[in-house]
Design a protein around this nucleic acid. Structure first.
Length: 137
DNA sequence: TAGGCCATCTGGTCCT
DNA sequence: AGGACCAGATGGCCTA
């Protein structure tokens, strides 16, 4: 067998091995990012704009996912708000809550947050009123 | 249409 | 040596 082709074979083999290594690394990277995204989805479920609690009639953005960065910011703000509530020893008022939760978020998300929290508050009030009425019946 | 967001690829670095 | 983690580059999609 001539030398030239032997060298070419070695080079080809090396590049085949390199490509194989790369494609395995890409596969692992995709898995790693996908597990990171699953963790982020779990976090989304825990923040006040929880997508599974979204209400159809609230607005047309109900099915729009919170972005990664906004999910992290909102989660951070939410923890701060809970901490604040704990240190004051009382529930936060609507505007106090909105103020803390909105830090660093886009105007769109803040608007969404406002309507969602207002909706939840109304639901909560309606529930309290009806249970009070039942109690007096 | 510019800008934001995302998934993917890639090469570098560190760790086991 | 091979895997995990990371940040930069790139291209596609969507929306204000």
């Amino acid at each position: 067998m001539p030398k030239v082709s032997k060298f070419r074979d070695e080079r080809d083999e090396k590049s085949v091995k390199a490509r194989l290594r790369r494609s395995k690394a890409n596969f692992r990277e995709r898995n790693r990012m996908s597990s990171l995204n699953r963790a982020l989805d779990n976090l989304r479920e825990k923040v006040p704009l929880n997508p599974t609690l979204a209400t159809m009639d609230l607005d047309q953005n109900h099915n729009q996912k919170l972005s990664k960065i906004e999910t992290l910011r909102l989660a951070y703000n939410y923890i701060s708000a809970l901490g604040q509530s704990l240190s004051w020893g009382r529930r936060l008022h609507f505007e106090e809550m909105i103020y803390i939760l909105s830090r660093g978020l886009s105007q769109t998300t803040v608007n969404l947050l406002r309507s969602r929290l207002r909706f939840d508050l109304d639901q909560h009030l309606a529930q309290s009123v009806s249970s009070t009425m039942l109690h007096h019946m």
